[in-house]
């Protein structure tokens, strides 16, 4: 019976009647599922068939066609190739903040010092231009420069500059969860972590993936059993750090080490903050099913 067929003038009675009908329908549905589950337990191929036929449409699965996923970037050499080809040279990172940074930026820097390998933190001083900082880094064989951006006592962004010739990435930072706030968190060790990069599929996404590949050494300490995951979903990159343990041949235990934060690429620039290669604009958010990474 449809709701408009309930021509009961008393509102309370009408509501009661409608709730009863709804309850009845729910029960019918639950019974149907129960019986279907029973049938499928006996014949698992039925379940496979049903799942194959009824695939749920998600925003991810309805993603707008992007030819760069299939074709990718051409040529073995790209912006980072020089670094990868050298291979033996480990990454060396200089970490600093924006000018006149506040407590939060330094706290975030402390967290990043534990996460990034072979990192040196230098307090940002007045009077040094980016060009000079890059020169100093070049003289001291730094391979990357990371700048924490803090605004109104909140950490809002991270700039990664690959040295000596770029490119430059600027990420927005959000949803930061401190290590202490993660229930059951473990303590990270100084072992070089393994790196998992998920869903970096487009040409731009692969470039971002290469950035992270170049930051973490290619020879992880497997005995540390630590893994950093950078999971890209709908252009948001989720940073997570775990320790794993093989409980038996099938079961794996995970312990989160923290911190958690989310990054979103805002800008990719050629060289040291020169010509823009890609920039996020608010117009891009209009199309919900178009993703760039």
């Amino acid at each position: 019976m449809a709701p408009d067929e309930l021509r009961v003038r008393n509102k309370m009675k009408r509501q009661q009647l409608f709730a009863d009908i709804k309850d009845q329908k729910n029960k019918e549905r639950h019974n149907m599922r129960k019986s279907r589950a029973k049938e499928e337990r006996e014949a698992p191929e039925m379940k496979d068939k049903r799942l194959k036929e009824n695939v749920t449409n998600t925003i991810d699965s309805l993603r707008v066609y992007d030819e760069t996923i299939e074709q990718g970037a051409e040529g073995e050499e790209s912006d980072f190739s020089q670094f990868f080809n050298n291979g033996s040279e480990p990454p060396k990172i200089l970490l600093t903040t924006n000018v006149n940074a506040k407590k939060n930026a330094y706290e975030f820097a402390n967290v990043l010092i534990e996460v990034l390998p072979n990192v040196t933190f230098v307090k940002r001083k007045f009077g040094y231009k980016l060009k000079e900082i890059v020169e100093f880094c070049g003289n001291r064989n730094y391979t990357d420069l990371v700048i924490i951006n803090e605004d109104k006592k909140k950490v809002t962004g991270l700039t990664f500059i690959h040295l000596p010739e770029g490119p430059t990435f600027y990420f927005k930072i959000s949803s930061y969860v401190d290590v202490q706030k993660i229930v059951g968190h473990g303590r990270a060790t100084s072992h070089i972590p393994e790196l998992i990069l998920n869903n970096f599929s487009t040409s731009l996404g692969k470039t971002v993936g290469k950035l992270f590949q170049s930051i973490f050494p290619q020879n992880p300490d497997f005995e540390g059993r630590q893994v950093i995951t950078l999971h890209n979903q709908r252009d948001y990159i989720f940073f997570r750090r775990h320790r794993y343990v093989f409980r038996n041949e099938e079961k794996i235990g995970l312990q989160e080490l923290g911190p958690q934060f989310t990054m979103k690429l805002q800008r990719l620039q050629h060289g040291i903050k020169e010509e823009t290669e890609w920039e996020h604009s608010t117009d891009m958010d209009k199309e919900k099913k178009k993703f760039y990474l």
Binding site: Y65, D66, E67, E74, G75, E77, S78
Partner: peptide
């Protein structure tokens, strides 16, 4: 093209658009 240091020859007609399948 920069990344491979190559010269590509493209033969196409009007209304060619690789971004639309």
């Amino acid at each position: 093209c920069d990344d491979s240091g190559s010269i590509k020859e493209v033969v196409c007609n009007r209304k060619t658009d690789t971004s639309i399948q």
